[in-house]
Amino acid sequence: MGGKNSVGFLILIIGIILIPFMVTNDYYLGVLIFTAFNCLACIGLCLLMGYAGQISIGHGAFIAIGAYTSGILTAKFAWSPWLAMFCGILIVIVIAFCLGIPALRLKGHYLAMATLGFASIVHIVAVAAVDLTGGPSGLVNIPRLDFFGYVLSSDKQYFYFSWSVVALGVYIAFNLINSRVGRGLQAIHGSEDAASSLGINITSYKVQVFILSAVFASVSGSLYAYYMNYIDPGPFDVSHSILLVTMVAVGGLHNIWGALIGAVFLSLLPEFLSFLSDYLQVLGIAYQPDYDTLVYGFILLIIMLFLPEGLFKGFGNITQFVRSIFKKFSKRASDRVK
């Protein structure tokens, strides 16, 4: 990890340590735990979309597969949660491999639709395969994670655990980006012809990063299942896959920090909006949680139209802009003094 990124990483770690001391309300701590799950999935998706340049609107499906594998194996077959999570990873690797080989030969719109179709199929199966998944009424009695018998029972413990996994994910992602393989992926994004002329096996690399990003999603799903102790198909529909793409795009495709910022921003947005609704009430606007979707849509659209590089880069540009104005003023002021 280079200079700026290690600073960012340090801030992340300090933030993780301090937040539970500042947020004592269990509800908000819970929201932040969900945020961690989204962050984890978004890191993987960012590697795939931002660095390798391959779109997937199907990562909700990998979260679902991770969650259901963990849920079914622990609740119905009393497996250890860790083993079930590992098994989920293996299943996701196999599925991502089988899907990735034909799908990643497709480009742009076709790939987007293929992955969207896949997400849809997985959701339908989760609803319809009642014997296995419990269908719409869901799957109960999923245990919490434990460390050698020490159960992560409080939200605070789970917060530390899930955000540590996020930090590990960030660490892995930066290692990958600055490695031989990571450069290969970025090369594929830049020019597939040039990349292959340098000996990079494009198909293999695309499939590998697709699998890696699916594994991130799978772990996120498993952690979700162990936190909720209950899963149903509701959160795993197509709109969740779309939400993940939205998070990565809003934050900034070409940067892991961007993906994290996007995930945090959109995960906390509903809370922020409900907080804001009290003030809007005063202005005579009756804000309801139903409007959230609309707000999401507009935020995504506005960012894509005006800050296509995402919030992260956008902030950078804005600070640069402000700095340049400031410089101009200070220069003018110093000229005047002369």
Partner: peptide, 28 residues
């Protein structure tokens, strides 16, 4: 129309954004 540097990914996300907006508005 206003998109000056269209990339496939950007256009996909823009039309997705419009679909979310229409869906959200329809729900409201």
């Amino acid at each position: 129309n206003p998109v000056k540097e269209p990339t496939v990914l950007r256009l996909i996300i823009i039309t997705i954004a419009v679909s979310i907006i229409i869906k959200g508005a329809a729900m409201c």
